[in-house]
Design a protein around this nucleic acid. Structure first.
Length: 639
RNA sequence: GCCGGCGUAGCUCAAUGGUAGAGCACCUGUUUUGUAAACAGGCGGUUGCGGGUUCGAAUCCCAUCGCCGGCUCCA
């Protein structure tokens, strides 16, 4: 087990944390305490509910242990002795299981510092005095082995650095990151609102946020037209039977909003004394006809007998769509296709609804209703690779245009448990190779992750971190061999026989909500001119300049720019301050001098006062900056 | 969903069992301003919602809704 020096330090800090906890709470039962990307934690079982005050005490005890300068000593022992050590220390509850995880033949080691001894592969710093800069940050619940059916433990998070300066820098960074949090900026800049009366995880896009979203949509739609996409519109709901054919219902029932069943139907069920469990079974069930059809198409018992009921027992209803694909599939299959028509590319900003667990909801990045910049491509096997390439280039255009370079690309391949994956292994090989070579062609660095594929095909995901350090999936490109089969999609080939198309799901932004959330944080609210809700604020020096200011406003609006006039009777400084706080890219100061020369005094967000310019020049500059979708100049670079 | 913390004016926060308050925002008036905050006055609250304890509850207890940090999940 090799660790970087920083990991070694943090891992040692977690041991010292455990040492301190046992001094204060000898009854604590320890699980594990590894280093993380940003610090370390230790999971422990303790009846006493730890509070932030307890953290202060534990941290003080850790400082003492560091001062005691205990050496970390490694001891390798046979398995039987390891078990004995764990029992002597009354830590058998979790540690014996951890011991059992160590494969036979591998060394079993303990690390001791002072009175504390822990089963541990290592490595560690040599003395506790090396721990000069650490801090406990938070307490959280965590399931033993990450399994929600297991005991929930208390997890203490902390961080450690080689020096106090580095720790202080990290903590300041955390504070600064919080200022860019999209939930905070969303409120300050009036970009979106979530109202508990509307519902958790349901975004209300306010006028400012709507401009942001609309600009992004217009941008991507322009690119889609260039790539030969067709625009479609589909409703927000669809019949349950549609999702039974696609397989989404009831397989993903727990992450869907409950189905809508007709009122007459419900009344009938209630009067017939139908129980909830019975009703649930009947809603989940499918007809003999549908089961036979799906099973025949997929060539196996995809829908098992226990889910089949006679037609008069079935309850149909509508589902808020959790995905757009079944609707798009139905558009494809509404008419016959020749190989000459392919690829068919159907695009829609489609709003979908998913029942996310309440504890998982987070601002705009994890919501229950969101709009995907979705599209479904229907193509031949041969077209798969170039089509994937086209999808990737879309994502690349977006990320490049927005200056987002801090992302990683993950190719999800099928894992070893082959039962989960549907479709012919030879087709999978081809699709996985197509993903790989498309990514290579476009020169994107990627990691291949076996087991991360969907059950219906491999995928390419774009992962981006938010200011808190949480990683989110944005853009995605997924190959699908399942839906074309289930819906019996075909096209007529050059050989005049029927063929099965391959489907690609792709969403370069992912969802507009999540993307905008991440984008707000990426720019810290200082949007490029083309995205800024308000681009230019007009500030007259005094009310005497209002008339001139109005003529300037008309010219800006007439050029398609988003501008407003500050008519408050405040002093100039106050008006400037207001515009700065609202992060408006440009302020035009208008006074007597400016009015005489059809000009304006320009103040830019990046550079400050830029002096007097002719209005005509300014209009040209602004419209060009919008048209080229120029990235904002950073304040530091401007100086 | 689970563990823990939190919920006071539009926003940021004060008031720890004894009269709900400040700053900003907003409105009115005065001021007419040259690059990040003029001055004065006014409006604004059933302390998330519902119960309970108490002579008296923002404060203590119960329940519920929501938010925050994790965990689990994410077609």
């Amino acid at each position: 087990m090799s660790m970087t020096p920083l990991e070694e330090l943090r891992h040692s800090a977690s041991h010292v944390l455990a040492t301190a906890v046992l001094r204060l709470y000898p009854e604590a039962r320890l699980d594990i305490g590894p280093p993380t990307d940003t610090g370390f934690y230790y999971d422990l079982d303790l009846d006493h509910k730890l509070t932030t005050e307890d953290l202060v005490k534990i941290e003080a005890e850790m400082k003492k242990i560091a001062d005691e300068n205990q050496p970390f000593i490694r001891k390798e022992v046979p398995r039987a002795e390891a078990e004995q050590i764990i029992r002597e220390r009354k830590q058998e509850r979790y540690k014996l299981g951890r011991l059992a995880d160590i494969p036979a033949g591998e060394a079993i080691s303990f690390y001791q510092n002072g009175e504390f001894m822990d089963l541990c592969a290592g490595t560690h710093v040599r003395y506790t005095a090396k721990l000069k800069a650490f801090k406990l940050l938070s307490i959280a619940g965590a399931y033993h082995r990450g399994d929600e059916t297991n005991q929930q433990l208390q997890r203490i998070y902390g961080t450690a650095f080689p020096t106090k300066e580095e720790l202080a820098n990290y903590l300041t960074q955390l504070e600064q990151a919080k200022l860019r949090d999209h939930r905070k900026l969303g409120k300050e800049l009036k970009l979106f609102h979530i109202d508990e009366d509307v519902g958790q995880g349901l975004i209300l896009w306010t006028p400012n946020g709507s401009i942001l979203r609309q600009q992004l949509q217009d941008f991507i739609m322009g690119e889609l037209r260039k790539q030969g996409y067709s625009q479609v519109f589909t409703p927000h709901i669809g019949r349950l039977s549609l999702y039974k054919t696609s397989g989404h219902f009831p397989y993903y029932k727990d992450s869907q909003f409950p189905p809508v069943v007709e009122r007459d139907f419900l009344d009938q069920l209630i009067s017939s004394g139908c129980t909830c469990a019975e009703m649930s079974n009947r809603i989940d069930a499918v007809s003999v006809h549908l089961a036979e059809r799906v099973n025949k198409l997929t060539g196996r018992e995809t829908i098992t007998k226990d889910r089949v009921l006679p037609d008069d027992q079935l309850i149909d209803g509508f589902l808020l769509k959790p995905m757009n694909c079944p609707h798009h599939v139905k558009i494809y299959s509404s008419q016959p296709h020749s190989y000459r028509d392919l690829p068919v590319r159907l695009a829609e900003f489609g709003t979908v609804y998913r029942w996310e667990q309440s504890g998982e909801l987070n601002g705009m990045t994890r919501v229950r209703g969101f709009t995907q910049d979705d599209a479904h491509l229907f193509c031949t096997e041969e077209q798969l690779q170039p089509e994937i390439l086209g999808c990737l280039s879309l994502v690349k255009i977006i990320l490049t245009t927005l200056g987002m370079s801090d992302y990683r690309v993950r190719i999800g391949l099928r894992g070893p448990d082959s039962d989960k994956y549907i479709g012919d292994p030879a087709m999978w090989d081809k699709a996985e190779a197509a993903c790989r070579s498309a990514a290579q062609t476009i020169a994107m660095a990627f990691t291949e992750e076996p087991g991360e594929a969907a059950f219906y095909g491999p995928k390419i995901d774009f992962m981006i971190r938010d200011v808190i350090g949480r990683e989110w999936q944005l853009g995605t490109v997924q190959v699908d061999y399942n839906l074309p089969v289930r819906f019996n999609l075909t096209y007529i080939g050059a050989d005049n026989t029927s063929h099965r198309p391959v489907m690609i799901h792709r969403a370069p932004f992912g969802s507009m909500e999540r993307f905008c959330g991440v984008l707000i944080e990426h720019f810290g609210g200082d949007f490029p001119l083309w995205l800024a809700p308000e681009q230019i604020r007009l500030v007259p020096i005094s009310d005497k300049n209002l008339d001139y200011a109005k003529t300037v406003l008309d010219q800006l609006l007439g050029s398609g720019l988003r501008a407003s006039l500050d008519t408050h009777s405040d002093k100039l400084g106050a008006k400037i301050r207001r515009a700065e706080l609202e992060k408006i890219p440009y302020v035009l100061v208008l006074g007597g001098k400016e009015a005489e020369a059809q000009s304006a005094s320009l103040r830019s967000r990046a550079k400050g006062d830029e002096g007097i310019h002719k209005l005509a020049d300014l209009l040209g500059r602004f419209t060009l900056e919008v048209a080229t979708r120029a990235l904002p100049v950073k304040k530091a670079e401007a100086r």
